[in-house]
Design a protein around this nucleic acid. Structure first.
Length: 272
DNA sequence: AGGGCTACCTGTACGC
DNA sequence: TGCGTACAGGTAGCCC
């Protein structure tokens, strides 16, 4: 489910609601996730205060008032809800009990994970140490992009590679390439400088718009208990196979193909 | 070394 | 209605 804008939306929600809250206790309901939740989490974080909530790519990091930090990944279906009272729901994994509120992590498909680290070690952990730059930062630039022009892969696969740039996923990559008017199957070696400029502009525009709108919701993206995410209404190509292209109107319909096992949507007239 | 493929897991939608 | 199949936005880890 969640790509960078959705994770950022979750971060903003959590920042507003659990910063400076003291963890009274933690209950592990079901440790089974992509990596099992370790028991130590419940006593290492007991009485600790959440002081910072950061995002790196699609990862969330909670920094605590003691030596510890927690790394979260939402996988495809992970989400948080914040309630005053706890009522079990299917696929709940862990409950963080604060004074007047409870934060619950729920994940149907169990592709997400929650890992405990020492604060000083978390940024060097295997999950985040090799991540590429943040797509909305100035480090993601033309000259940075040019370092990858010899990659023997397609432009869609390059954008999907988290070590090239952190946070783009399958939906936004289709949208970005449509906006840039570049076919997702183009080899990176054929991309010209003017096209790099278009891609970088499209990345920044589409992601920042999506964050403003609260992230895309296709289904299951919930924070608090309230569905958020309005970007789905703005998708130009993703999930629109067979429907008229919104740019060239009735001249062409959106096509779908599979690249590296993932669906890609594009317009064969608008994108070259 | 770089890049592609598959496994992981459950729910839903669809065809018969 | 029930059953079988395909597919779903994630990454890690294996293989070539």
């Amino acid at each position: 489910m969640p790509e960078l804008p959705e994770v950022e939306t979750v971060r903003l929600f959590l920042k507003k609601n659990i910063i400076q809250e003291k963890t009274l206790s933690i209950k592990i309901e079901n440790p089974k996730l992509r990596f099992p939740i370790v028991k130590e989490i419940s006593y290492k974080l007991c009485n600790a205060i959440v002081t910072k909530i950061l995002r790196r790519g699609k990862y969330l990091l909670f920094l605590y008032s003691n030596d510890y930090a927690v790394l979260f990944h939402l996988g495809m279906t992970g989400f948080f809800r914040l309630n005053e009272l706890y009522k079990f729901r299917k696929h709940d994994h862990i409950i963080f009990n604060f004074l007047n509120k409870k934060l619950i992590f729920n994940d149907v498909r169990k592709f997400g994970f929650i890992k405990l680290y020492k604060k000083k070690e978390i940024f060097q952990c295997s999950h985040i140490k090799n991540l590429g730059p943040e797509p909305l930062g100035c480090e993601f630039s033309i000259s940075y992009f040019q370092n990858y022009l010899s990659s023997k892969t397609t432009i869609k696969n390059l954008l999907m590679n988290q070590n090239f740039v952190a946070g783009l996923g399958n939906i936004y990559c289709s949208e970005i390439l449509f906006r840039s008017r570049i076919l997702p199957t183009r080899l990176v070696t054929t991309i010209k400088e003017e096209e790099i400029i278009k891609i970088i502009k499209a990345v920044k525009k589409i992601l920042s718009n999506a964050i403003k709108l609260g992230g895309t919701t296709i289904k299951n993206f919930v924070v608090s208990d309230q569905e958020v995410g309005y970007f789905k209404n703005k998708l130009m190509v993703y999930g629109r196979e067979g429907l008229p292209c919104l740019r060239c109107k009735n001249k062409n319909v959106i096509k779908k193909l599979i690249q590296s096992g993932r669906s890609t949507f594009f317009c064969s007239k608008c994108q070259i």
